[in-house]
Amino acid sequence: MAGQRADARRNYALLLAVAEQAVADQGADASLEQIARTAGVGSGTVRRHFPTRHALLEAVFRKRMDTLADRARELAGRPDSPAALLEWLGAVLSFAATTRGVAEALNRGHLADAGEFCASARLSEAGGPLVARAVAGGGLAPGVTIADLLDLITGIALATEHHPDGVDQAKRLLDLTINGVSGPA
């Protein structure tokens, strides 16, 4: 973006601000044409900056994904690796459960083109060391991967997106996932 003309940078910033609001209001399927109209630009301008819906969603959520990645790095040094992993997964779930479109962006991450910023890849990279430490320390079953855990988080967030108490229900489902559903034997 540094090599862009000033008007292109302004358009990008305006489109991103409009898109953030549209996704917050309407979710991952917010109309690209409406975003263009609200920003006062043509749909071609939207497509130049965001060639796919996925690219738009990734741009909308990039800052928060970066914050979650930073948090994973901070937690990686904690001695209780399972607790650190659970704290981070809780933060990811909280974001996905409270911000419309995030779960869908994570779900669509498998469709990202090579070299394109990808929320699920960014979170996988950040959370991978937490998972590796938890597995090595015996606090997580062998064979569990960060991709598995992010798929669970995404599924929980998608399942609770329209629940009246979505965040509480999402946390409850994460607890059930971690603790299991079987009672004492």
Rank of each mutant, 00 (worst) to 15 (best):
A39W: 01
G40W: 03
P51W: 06
G40N: 06
R37I: 03
L68V: 03
S43T: 14
V41W: 08
A69V: 02
R47K: 15
E58I: 04
K63D: 10
H49G: 10
G40Y: 03
E58V: 13
H49L: 11
V60Q: 08
P51F: 07
T38S: 10
L68W: 07
R62A: 15
L68Q: 03
V60W: 06
R37C: 00
E58G: 14
A55W: 13
S43L: 11
L56H: 01
A39I: 03
G42D: 10
P51H: 05
S43F: 11
T38N: 04
H54D: 02
G44F: 13
E58Y: 10
T45G: 00
H54Y: 14
M65Q: 13
A55T: 13
T38Q: 12
M65D: 13
V41K: 09
A36I: 06
A39P: 00
R62L: 14
L56N: 01
R48F: 07
V60C: 07
D66G: 15
K63H: 07
T67W: 10
L57F: 09
D66E: 15
H54Q: 06
K63G: 00
T38G: 00
G44I: 12
M65W: 14
V46M: 11
L68G: 00
R64E: 12
G44D: 15
H49P: 05
D66C: 08
H49K: 12
D70A: 14
K63S: 09
R62E: 15
H54I: 00
G42K: 03
G44Y: 14
R64P: 01
V41E: 05
V41N: 04
S43Q: 13
T52I: 12
R53K: 15
L56G: 00
